[in-house]
C-alpha cells in the first residue's frame, strides 16, 4: 500500500479516490502511518484507511480469509456509477503492480468516454489504437490489430 501512497498523485490526476481496507483498527492505522509509512512516503498516507475488524467488508467482497482472520489482497476498480469494472485477488505473499491498475483505469475511462463505442485490445495504453466493435469489424480485427501491437 506504500506504493499506492507514493504514486497517489498519478491516481488523483485520473480522478481516482483510494480506499484501503484491513482488519486493523483505525488506531493501528494511525500508528502504522506515523511510525513507518510516513517514513517511506512524504506526508504520510494520503487516502482513507478503513478498519474492518469484524471482516464484514472483506466478506462482502469475497476477500475475507476465514481461517487466518485477515483480508486477501483484493483490488477493485469501481466506476462513477458504483459498478465494479475490474477485480483482482492475490494471496498475501505477492504484492500488486500499481502500473497495471492505472492502465486498466485509463482503459475503462476511455471506454466510458466513448460511451462504449470503443474497446481496448490486449495491452492497450493511452495513445494506442482502439477497436470499434460493429458489423464491419467481424472477422476483420486482423486488418487493424495484431498481437505485436500489445
Amino acid at each position: 500500500m506504500s506504493a499506492v501512497a507514493a504514486n497517489y498523485q498519478k491516481l488523483q490526476d485520473l480522478g481516482v479516490e483510494v480506499i484501503s481496507v484491513s482488519v486493523d483498527s483505525h488506531f493501528v492505522h494511525k500508528i502504522w502511518n506515523d511510525e513507518e509509512l510516513s517514513k517511506m512516503v512524504d506526508g504520510g498516507v494520503p487516502y482513507h484507511m478503513v478498519a474492518d475488524q469484524a471482516g464484514n467488508v472483506g466478506r462482502a467482497y469475497g476477500c475475507w480469509d476465514e481461517n487466518q482472520g485477515v483480508e486477501l489482497r483484493g483490488r477493485f476498480i469501481i466506476d462513477p456509477d458504483g459498478v465494479i469494472q475490474a477485480m483482482e485477488v492475490l494471496t498475501p505473499p505477492v504484492g500488486r503492480k500499481l502500473a497495471e491498475t492505472i492502465r486498466q483505469i485509463q482503459a475503462y475511462q476511455h471506454v466510458r468516454a466513448t460511451g462504449g463505442k470503443e474497446a481496448c485490445p490486449a495491452g492497450w495504453e493511452p495513445g494506442k489504437p482502439t477497436l470499434k466493435p460493429g458489423p464491419d469489424l467481424v472477422g476483420k480485427v486482423w486488418e487493424v490489430w495484431n498481437p505485436s501491437m500489445e
Binding site: 499506492v4 480506499i19 484501503s20 485477515v70 483490488r75
Partner: peptide
Amino acid sequence: YAGKWVMLCFYPGDF
C-alpha cells in the same frame, strides 16, 4: 463516492 472512480484495496494487515 458516487460520481467518482474508486480504487478499493484490501490487504492482510498493517506492519
